[in-house]
C-alpha cells in the first residue's frame, strides 16, 4: 500500500510546530504503525533529513511509552490498542493519516511527537503507593482477598500510564489515570490505612500539575488502550468525598 502521512514537526517546546507531508511507499499490511515510521525515518536519514522523533520502547503495548494522536484519536482507530500494536492492515492503500503529539498543558512537547509526561510521576509520588518498607511484610497468604476484588483491582492496575485519556479529553483531565491507581488500592485491604490521605494528595497534585477538571464526557474510557473503566472515576469521587467528610 501507499500512504500519505501528515506529521506534526516541532523542533522543541519553544518553537512553533507545523504539519509536514510525507509519502510512504510499499507499506506491508503486516507492518506495525511504528514500523512504518521506521521505514519513513530510514528514508529521511538517507535523504539527509531529520527523522521524526517519537516515543516508544516495548512495542508490545505495555510500557506506555508510545503516544501518537492518529486521525484525531489517541492511539488511532482501534479500541483497546496502543499505537505500537496498531498494524497497517487497519488502513487502506491511498489513505492519508494525520499524526500529532498528545496535546495538553501538563504534557509539554519535547520534540515532534514526543511529550513530557513527568507530571504523572509526580502524581504517583504524592500518594500512589502503600507505605510498606522492605522486610516488613507478613506471609502473603495471611491476607485473604476475595477473587472478585482482586480481579477488579487488577483491571484498574492494568493502566500503562500512557496519557491517552488526557489527550482524548477536551478538558485535558487526568481523572481516569488517577482513579485507576486510587481504585486499585482502595479495593484492596492493603490500601485501607492510607485510603483517605492518598486520594486527597493525588487529586491535589493532579490539580497542581494543570490538568483540567472532569465533566464526565467518557472520552477517556473510549480511547484508553487498556479499557480502564470510568467506574473508577466514580469510585475516586466517592473516595474523595468520604475523605473530605472524614477530615
Amino acid at each position: 500500500m501507499n500512504i500519505t502521512l501528515k506529521v506534526w514537526r516541532q523542533k522543541n517546546n519553544n518553537e512553533r510546530g507545523r504539519f509536514e507531508t510525507y509519502q510512504v511507499k510499499d507499506v506491508s499490511p503486516d507492518m506495525s504503525f511504528l514500523e512504518m515510521f521506521d521505514v519513513l525515518n530510514e528514508d529521511l536519514i538517507t535523504e539527509g533529513k531529520e527523522p521524526i522523533a517519537f516515543d516508544h520502547d516495548c512495542r508490545e503495548g505495555i510500557c506506555g511509552m508510545c503516544s501518537m494522536y492518529i486521525n484525531g484519536r489517541p492511539h488511532g482507530p482501534l479500541q483497546g490498542v496502543t499505537t505500537c500494536q496498531l498494524h497497517m492492515r487497519s488502513f487502506k492503500d491511498g489513505d492519508t493519516i494525520v499524526v500529532e503529539p498528545w496535546r495538553a498543558a501538563a504534557f509539554p512537547v519535547i520534540k515532534d511527537l514526543a511529550v513530557d509526561r513527568t507530571s504523572f510521576d509526580r502524581i504517583m509520588a504524592a500518594g500512589g503507593f502503600v507505605s510498606v518498607n522492605t522486610g516488613n511484610a507478613q506471609d502473603a497468604n495471611s491476607i485473604l482477598i476475595p477473587k472478585t476484588d482482586a480481579d477488579l483491582a487488577f483491571e484498574a492496575a492494568a493502566c500503562i500510564g500512557c496519557g491517552a485519556c488526557v489527550a482524548a479529553c477536551k478538558n485535558s483531565s487526568a481523572m481516569l489515570f488517577v482513579s485507576a491507581k486510587v481504585s486499585q488500592l482502595a479495593l484492596l485491604p492493603q490500601g485501607q490505612v492510607e485510603r483517605h490521605e492518598r486520594v486527597i494528595k493525588m487529586v491535589n497534585q493532579m490539580d497542581e500539575e494543570g490538568f483540567g477538571s472532569c465533566t464526565n464526557t467518557g472520552a477517556c474510557e473510549a480511547e484508553c488502550p487498556k479499557n480502564i473503566s470510568v467506574e473508577n472515576i466514580a469510585r475516586l469521587n466517592r473516595e474523595y468525598l468520604s475523605a473530605k467528610i472524614a477530615k
Binding site: 502503600v130 510498606v132 516488613n136 511484610a137 502473603a140 476475595p146 483491582a153 492496575a157 488500592l185 492493603q190
Partner: peptide, 12 residues
C-alpha cells in the same frame, strides 16, 4: 510477601 503488601494484585 513484600509484593502483596505493596498491593500487587496477583491472581487468586
Amino acid at each position: 510477601d513484600q509484593c502483596v503488601a505493596q498491593g500487587v494484585p496477583f491472581a487468586r
